[in-house]
Design a protein around this nucleic acid. Structure first.
Lengths: 120, 120, 120, 120
DNA sequence: GTGGTCTAGACCACC
DNA sequence: GTGGTCTAGACCACG
């Protein structure tokens, strides 16, 4: 559990959790079939409510990144390279669509957007 | 006032207003020194609350895109090309920084990000 | 809001809510664009927690049956006949698959299953 | 003991056990008066808790499918064809009633249900 | 007024 | 011990 929570961020906590854990799983930083800490312990460690953890975990499960065995715990799913690519693209592309729409609303062309991206 | 408001969008209305008006000003689609409609009329036209308009206008003023003359109304600022470029870059870059951070959190390189961007 | 909640049912309350409301929407018993009662009022009326209502509503939204405008309320989605058929089939078939597997585990053939179904 | 346990299934393990053993008995795959393995051995073989086995066995006994002789063990009941039919129908019909109620809640007729069943 | 989020504390089923 | 569900009550953003 290597997660940083910002209480001042505009993003809800469960969203921050989802983003960080999902990226860690997709990058292979969390081993497959690894047992995530019990939600109540995770909640205590991170200083948030159990329900907040639960909400993040549910989204992870919905994306196929973890699976839950009631009474046993939560485990990182075993993913093929294809699975990983697909899920990662889903998550990233969904965000990119709205990001690019925003950039283009200022009259920027794709090339201009790319030029600016390189300067970030 | 050429603005489209989406009630179903996840973005708050005042932000939709700010984004559309600011981009129009920066693209030169709204003439400099042009008098924006009084907030009450704008509210009526767009079918939104006066408070919402006020919030959007305030944000525009904060960015230096419009200025208010008490008792006269709100006017589009007179901006040099340099001013325009600067403000546009400010707005876009601010967003890009957090967007790119998100993409990179999945282990994507700049080149991969650009490749995906082209497919949006 | 025409819903019956069973506290003794094995099904969680939010699931009962989802099933009853979704079937009512799909049968056209709740008008399109109809404003569902505010979640806090619904919670009071039904004698359950706001969070329970929220969980059910979220699943309805995920299925495309309702949409939420923050600060405004929750509305029944406008669905074409095709949409309705698709969503209904999704929901029913998902259940049928596991039901039929159960029946067949007793050695019943499809014909026998159908014969018994007629006697229910 | 020819049983497959799925840890990821939503069904509790004791119920998976009950369903599989009961169907095997009803299909005649387990001989009448056959001595079921002692719960401790069964637990070891299947890698589950003794409590879980006990719960499943109890349910089997409640259905009249097995009987226990203190100090001797558990035996498969001697069932006439009629007994078998009756118990099987009890188990299946009990499930079907709630299944059909669910299907019908979406406005499906019996014929439509049967049509969909054939496509499963 | 609306929904969005969060908390603390509780009971249950399963293992 | 684990997760699954539920409650009551709270604060915030938006309009």
């Amino acid at each position: 559990m290597n997660v940083i929570i910002s209480n001042t961020s505009e993003k809800p906590i469960y969203q921050q959790l989802f983003e960080q854990i999902s990226s860690q799983i997709l990058k292979g930083e969390i081993k497959q079939a690894y047992n995530l800490p019990p939600i109540r312990r995770a909640a205590k460690e991170l200083g948030v409510s159990v329900i907040t953890i639960k909400k993040a975990w549910e989204e992870l499960e919905r994306q196929g990144l973890i699976y839950t065995i009631s009474g046993k715990g939560c485990f990182v799913a075993e993913l093929s390279s294809d699975d990983i690519l697909k899920i990662r693209n889903d998550l990233v592309m969904k965000q990119m669509v709205s990001d690019v729409a925003y950039y283009k609303s200022f009259g920027l062309t794709l090339d201009e957007i790319i030029e600016m991206l390189k300067k970030v």
